[in-house]
Design a binder for these strands. Structure first.
Lengths: 539, 539
DNA sequence: TTCATTCTCACCTATGTGTGAAAA
DNA sequence: GGTTTTCACACATAGGTGAGAATG
């Protein structure tokens, strides 16, 4: 049995090129590769060793050569408690999401090296959808259960110590335990909103910037540790995951076995209704000492995971995946085998190749600017009913700009902004009457009364960290130029925003228009009706 | 009964002038005044209303006029939970100090107004000795019990949200609950080290600066709320203070009365040995509802406090202060009456006058620079055995510069530095053999072997706030120019300091030399013996 | 039914209180 | 003797766990 190889694959991000074949090649193969579906458009450039001080099996990669020098002073990031993460990953990590917000376990914590000691950095984390599937746990297996539900806008969590000097970041592991997961689309804490039964990938970002306001203009170095991938759940599905959590999370100590035997309650749960299939495989030994199992892993298999490579079957039950296959404790093995068989989609296939030829554990993307970053990250920024609810939830604390001294912003570069951000469909002109409180579904093939609006831009910090009492946990209000439609903002516009004297000046009848997510702020446009105008569309 | 009048007395600080009579006068009197002994050299300049939104009795001051305009954009600071503070103050506030660190109660929390919304500020707090006395609680009274013990260097606690915009500071009260008090001179948490049975005064500072490194060059606006004065104790002395703490601190809820009657334990303690005098005054009603007592306060009396005006008697028991005087629950009353009688020292007398004519609650000092600030604050920076222990305690984490590239600092202005900082007596040339590990008391009238040293300057952040995981909680190491004696540093020298590559290069035989306290750092000089030289002094 | 979600609960960690006996 | 300090302790706050019943 062989440990998975964990080293960093450092890649440059070229937002407007899918492939850059020939320019930079991997020493062991030379194929350009793709990252998973929702982390697309990545071309490999350079690759370096990650855990130079790590003592695990990654030394096997030392012989790899590079055709290109690494970028100057490329920071090195290693995942803390990697072995624990791998334990979970082998079984298919689950993270509970609750209405009130839940921490991740294992905690997402990284060690950073190679920073400029005296330069200031902002460290961030976010969580993005891995694929476009919805999953279900059936017969002790994760299976695809249809197309993904629309994603809520994902918040970029800024580590509360940001900005700090490289020296300080490198002094001790950087923990993100204050990032909380929720399924509450009305959340007002700034938690990360996830869809239950969907697959996600945490990411870590390093930005060399001495001020949070400079984030939009800065280069993002993004690190992905594939063993931190997980499926969000409202209740644990895989009993082995539950056991791992209980055994390792200090807060769950109360559920550990009493005395020498097994805990009563946990055994009881495993005898719960459902299709009590193959409970024999769930022996104490297998669960308690997974590393002593006799399964053999091929190098490729050990590099894959049940979460990394979803099966192509999107039907509820219509796949040949044998229900009789024993519910192996090492889920990753069987899943990756299936992937080898069934992986037909391009990106997944290329991903398999990349995994076979390089190191899957850590991938780094470097974004030249926030704009580039959004080219990749904005996939989660979709227009849907949930999103509308989300926007309206934000409204509870807000009112809207009633007039006064308006200010013009520079939108000259807004065409460079991703389409998702420029005009979420919900708030397109013809649908402006479909605001909450109005009709839920308004066809565009009718006469439409379109109000004319003035717009106020309201900025909500993306992470409201009250435990550290950071003043930025409240809302900021900005005034924005008037216009008929909320314009698309680009990062440079942030610099020209001016705070309003008193947010309470906004009248309650103001309505949220649409929203954009920047690194620091969730920008929400509010509009105040000036007058109405009727357009005859088709009727 | 009349509420104490609490408004802000805003004063300019002129470090080199005791009085500036005539230039600015108080509208209600016109006498220049002094602050308490260890906050000296203050001339009143302007005075303004503090709580413009407050609804208490301070409206009585609205009619006061000023002969001088307030400084442009002078921030206004009001103390949070002021009535609770006053409850304690009337009885003589005590704060427990423990080895592991103890919070203050009531919590020191202020509301700030009048800041520039978009400018960045650093908010700080420190605690300074009020006088040069040591106290004891005898016959239910605080009495002077001799001269004060030497003070440890006081740390300037930087609010962890610093720097933040004025807008953010003004949004909600600024709490300093993470500042902890200790009597452990070896403390390595960065807590404030106090002497038990000594009197202290918390202070609040506003500095307009966008970077902590700019603190040394910035103007300090300092606010003093006299009702936050307290005596540090290792165990509560005044039972009424204990009761107030229990009744108001949520964490002490377990000690509140059970059911309808009085708590058993507390009554038991009040029947403890000692001089169980006049326990009748300790009736349930009087203790539980102090505000309903029938005592009448003269305006002057209610403005004074037992802690503000120490009795002049410095003998253990040799004063005429009648032990038969009833241990009134309203201690402040009797104490201030005594002060009126006995206050003979100039500063105290003038203080009494000032209290009679202006508002005692809030005093503000404005320091033009950190250097000026130290002219006032450095009184706590004394040379003594405790201090030596303290310095050596710091050494546990340190070693010393062994050579290499030395760097010259600019000491051209060091004569402007307060004497306390320039050469603490312990480390004067003739006493250099009296380092820890050598003789404790070395007379200067002997032959002395004086080592020649090289100096390394080591910088220790003053607040190590680990709860927020701020990276600055570790030590920083700087190299310093060599020399025979540790030079006195001035703020501008900080800018030229360069971090050393590895603190562990310092040899263990290095010795702490002396220390300076800046706003951000505790600077500790370490020396490495180069060679020795013997001086014949007088023998 | 089956699956997914929500909620209360006991049981943890972690930390802030004064007590009261013992020690210094 | 008197005074001051220390420590284990019970009891708070605050919040992080999964269990399991109830709900949809």
């Amino acid at each position: 049995m062989r440990d998975p190889v964990h080293s960093a694959a450092v890649m440059d991000y070229y937002p407007f090129q899918i492939h850059r074949p020939g320019a930079y090649t991997l020493s062991s193969g030379g194929h350009p590769s793709l990252l998973p579906p929702l982390i697309p458009r990545v071309a490999p450039q350079v690759e370096r060793l990650a855990g130079q001080v790590a003592a695990d099996g990654r030394a096997a990669l030392r012989g790899l050569q590079r055709t290109e020098e690494v970028l100057d002073e490329e920071p090195t990031v290693t995942l803390d408690s990697q072995s624990l993460w791998s334990e979970f990953h082998k079984r298919g990590t689950e993270m509970v999401i609750t209405r009130s917000g839940r921490r991740m376990f294992p905690p997402f914590k990284v060690r950073v090296r190679g920073l400029d000691e005296s330069a200031k950095y902002i460290l961030l984390m976010d969580i993005v959808a891995v694929d476009d599937y919805r999953y279900k746990f059936h017969n002790s297996r994760w299976m695809v259960a249809g197309k993904a539900d629309p994603e809520m806008p994902k918040r970029m969590y800024i580590h509360p110590d940001s900005p700090s000097k490289g020296e300080q970041w490198m002094r001790k592991p950087v923990a993100f335990h204050k990032l909380k997961l929720t399924n509450n689309i009305l959340d007002k804490h700034g938690f990360t909103i996830l869809n239950s039964m969907h697959k996600y990938q945490p990411r870590f970002h390093i930005v060399k910037a001495n001020d949070i306001m400079k984030l939009p203009y800065s280069t993002f170095r993004t690190y992905v540790f594939s063993e931190t991938e997980f499926i969000a759940v409202t209740a644990y599905q895989n009993e082995k995951i539950t056991q791992l959590k209980i055994d390792n999370n200090p807060f769950a100590k109360g559920f550990r076995e009493t005395g020498n035997g097994r805990r009563e309650k946990r055994n009881k749960q495993s005898a719960v209704p459902g299709s009590a299939d193959q409970e024999g495989a769930d022996s104490d030994e297998a669960c308690e000492n997974p590393s002593t199992s006799n399964h053999h892993h091929s190098p490729l298999e050990s590099l894959s995971s049940p979460l990394t490579l979803p099966p192509p079957c999107q039907e509820e039950d219509g796949e040949s995946d044998s229900d009789m296959e024993p519910p192996d404790e090492d889920f990753a093995e069987t899943r990756s085998s299936r992937a080898d068989r069934d992986c037909t989609q391009d990106s997944e296939e290329m991903l398999c190749n990349m995994y076979a030829e390089t190191e899957p554990s850590k991938k780094m993307l470097t974004f030249r600017t926030l704009r580039d970053y959004h080219m990749v990250a904005a996939d989660a920024f979709k227009t849907n009913n949930k999103y509308r609810d989300y926007v309206m939830a934000q409204r509870q604390n807000l009112s809207t700009f009633s007039g006064g001294h308006l200010q013009t912003l520079d939108f000259s570069l807004s065409q460079n902004f991703p389409k998702h951000l420029q005009a979420p469909g919900l708030f397109q002109p013809g649908q402006s009457a479909a605001m909450p409180g109005a009709e839920a579904h308004l066809s565009t093939s009718e006469n439409v009364t379109v109000p004319l609006w003035r717009f106020a831009l309201i900025s909500i910090p993306l992470h409201a960290d009250t435990s550290c009492q950071h003043p930025s946990s409240s809302h900021l209000f900005f005034k924005l130029s008037s216009g008929q439609e909320p314009p698309s903002l680009q990062p440079s516009a942030l610099a020209t925003l001016q705070p309003l004297p008193d947010p309470h000046l906004y009248p309650p009848e103001a309505k949220a228009s649409f929203s954009q997510s920047f690194n620091e702020f969730e920008l929400i446009f509010w509009r105040v009706k000036i007058r109405e105008q009727t357009f005859g569309s088709s009727v």
